[in-house]
């Protein structure tokens, strides 16, 4: 994706990802109402939808959209944060029809409500399921800054602090240094 295209999104935070490390070329955080317009821009630029994922973090429920291009690789990630008490995000299933099932699945797993969705009924869970299996316990939730790639920020709305939150006190080890210990204790 060119920077020109990326700049056309209305974002809260637009950043360049480190593709080699995370597989993402661009990461943009949007407010829910700006999502459909960004999806339309991506479709016009011949991107295809890869998936829609949910993520339960301390700040609320996040929907993460992955897009890619068939011939010019460069994954574009759109993140939309919804309020936990009222998790509503507008649907993009009228733009990318493939999002229809992905959104139903995310509704199953997280209870995110995709407003305007034509058929938001359980997809994978039983029709009478009254639980959302991937929601986390309060204590197990981590904040966005501790989990997600921040990237090289090009543009940030005033007052946007999602990735500035203090990193949780979870022990963070680099892959290389953790291995020695793991090798010693493993195989028990």
């Amino acid at each position: 994706m060119s920077e020109q295209l990326a700049r056309r999104f209305t974002t809260l935070c637009l950043a360049k990802g480190e593709y080699k490390k995370s597989g993402q070329a661009w990461v943009a955080t949007l407010s829910p109402r700006d999502l459909p317009a960004a999806a339309q821009e991506l479709l016009d630029a011949e991107f295809h939808i890869e998936d829609v994922c949910g993520l339960d973090i301390s700040e609320g429920l996040m929907a993460v959209y992955h897009f890619d291009h068939f011939t010019r690789p460069g994954r574009v990630t759109l993140r939309v944060l919804a309020d936990r008490d009222k998790p509503e995000i507008p649907t993009i299933s009228h733009i990318f029809q493939g999002a229809n099932w992905h959104e139903r699945e995310t509704n199953d797993f997280y209870g995110i409500i995709f407003t305007g969705h034509p058929n938001l009924i359980p997809l994978l869970l039983p029709e009478d399921a009254d639980f959302h299996p991937l929601l986390k316990e309060e204590a197990a939730r981590k904040n966005a800054a501790a989990l997600l790639e921040k990237g090289e920020i090009l543009d940030q709305a005033a007052g946007f602090t999602l990735f500035d939150a203090p990193v949780a006190d979870a022990p963070i080890e680099s892959g290389a240094s953790g291995e020695g210990e793991a090798a010693g204790e493993g195989g028990k």
């Binding site: 995370s22 989990l147 790639e149 892959g175 291995e179 090798a183 195989g187």
Partner: peptide, 18 residues
């Protein structure tokens, strides 16, 4: 050498691989 074992901890962050 020292390939991850069951008690291995991954570094924090995210990655997508296809």
């Amino acid at each position: 050498k020292g390939a991850p074992k069951p008690n291995w901890k991954a570094p924090a962050g995210e990655a997508y691989f296809a």
